[in-house]
């Protein structure tokens, strides 16, 4: 077997297909997006002068600012819920399920739904949450409520429930990986040094899984920020987040405004990722054992 040295001509040629693909589907569209968002003037054409007017117009509108605030708050809340829930699931899977067969089966049960598209999974929640939906039927049959609860569908609660179910495994996955890479002897060593199980968790297990938690949070953050499908299907037309604003502008042919929101959304996400990378050096994951 031969190896290719990092800076040899061959290694550059081998990188060409991937680089071309990235250039075509990521870099060029983003440059176009930023360019369009800066178009001024009255006509929609490449000849337009470049200004920050579109951005100024966005920031001048209180409704949009409030919507941006709501979006961030909603995302942070979801990160908290999926983070805690995902950690618990990961912990149970790795630490409590002893049989490797069961662990694999449960893990698959959790991730197989991810094989369908986000849109389909979001729509699948409608029959669950509706007035005659599964959850209401169940609640009424056990006598928890007399009349069906309308607040599930086309509401903030419904959106949150659906998104929690969609993104919890994203928070859990990296934690599963980090948890299973902790040598059992570390916990045992802490116990022989008089640490109680709770202390072992907070002082040994949790710090060692922190990179996994952060990566999971980044995944949830990115997905919730850009998730317009769930908000649109479960929220009806009553609720919107920043990403729905992009769709709204796009559908009404306000391409410049849509670009502005898209660019701002992208900046938000970048800032989020940069903050996360400051907390944990993802590139050094698993090196220090």
């Amino acid at each position: 077997m031969s190896t290719i040295r990092v800076r040899s001509p061959a290694s550059y040629w081998l990188a060409v297909p991937a680089a071309a693909w990235m250039l075509g589907v990521v870099v060029v569209p983003i440059v176009l997006l930023v360019w369009v968002s800066l178009w001024g003037g009255r006509t929609f054409s490449p000849a337009s002068p470049l200004t920050f007017d579109n951005y100024a117009r966005f920031f001048a509108n209180q409704t949009y600012i409030k919507l941006a605030g709501t979006t961030v708050m909603h995302t942070v809340m979801l990160m908290a819920v999926t983070g805690v829930l995902g950690y618990c699931i990961a912990y149970c899977l790795v630490m409590k399920v002893r049989s490797p067969g069961w662990r694999l089966a449960l893990f698959l049960a959790f991730i197989i739904p991810f094989w369908t598209s986000t849109l389909i999974r979001a729509i699948a929640w409608v029959p669950f949450l509706g007035v005659n939906g599964v959850i209401n039927q169940l609640l009424m049959s056990i006598g928890a409520t007399r009349s069906p609860i309308e607040a599930f569908l086309y509401s903030k609660t419904g959106i949150t429930m659906a998104q929690v179910s969609l993104y919890t495994m994203m928070a859990a996955g990296p934690v599963v990986y980090m948890l299973s890479s902790i040598a059992p002897q570390l916990r045992e060593a802490a116990m022989t040094l008089k640490a109680t199980p709770l202390t072992v968790f907070w002082r040994i297990v949790f710090p060692l899984t922190l990179p996994g938690v952060v990566i999971g949070q980044v995944l949830v953050f990115l997905n919730v920020m850009s998730d317009f499908a769930t908000v649109a299907t479960i929220g009806g037309n009553k609720h919107a987040l920043l990403s729905n604003l992009v769709l709204l502008f796009y559908e009404s042919s306000q391409i410049r405004a849509a670009s502005v929101v898209a660019v701002l959304l992208m900046i938000c996400m970048l800032v989020g990722v940069i903050i996360a990378l400051r907390v944990v050096d993802v590139r050094r994951l698993g090196v220090e054992r």
């Binding site: 045992e188 060593a189 022989t192 060692l208």
Partner: peptide, 28 residues
């Protein structure tokens, strides 16, 4: 284990990767 008057040295030493030597030694 945490109620027994023992200490243990493990085969591959089981040092806590995220703690400095001083922190590690003071853990007990």
């Amino acid at each position: 284990p945490w109620q027994r008057d023992i200490a243990m040295m493990f085969q591959d030493f089981a040092l806590f990767p995220h703690m400095t030597v001083a922190k590690q030694v003071g853990f007990g």
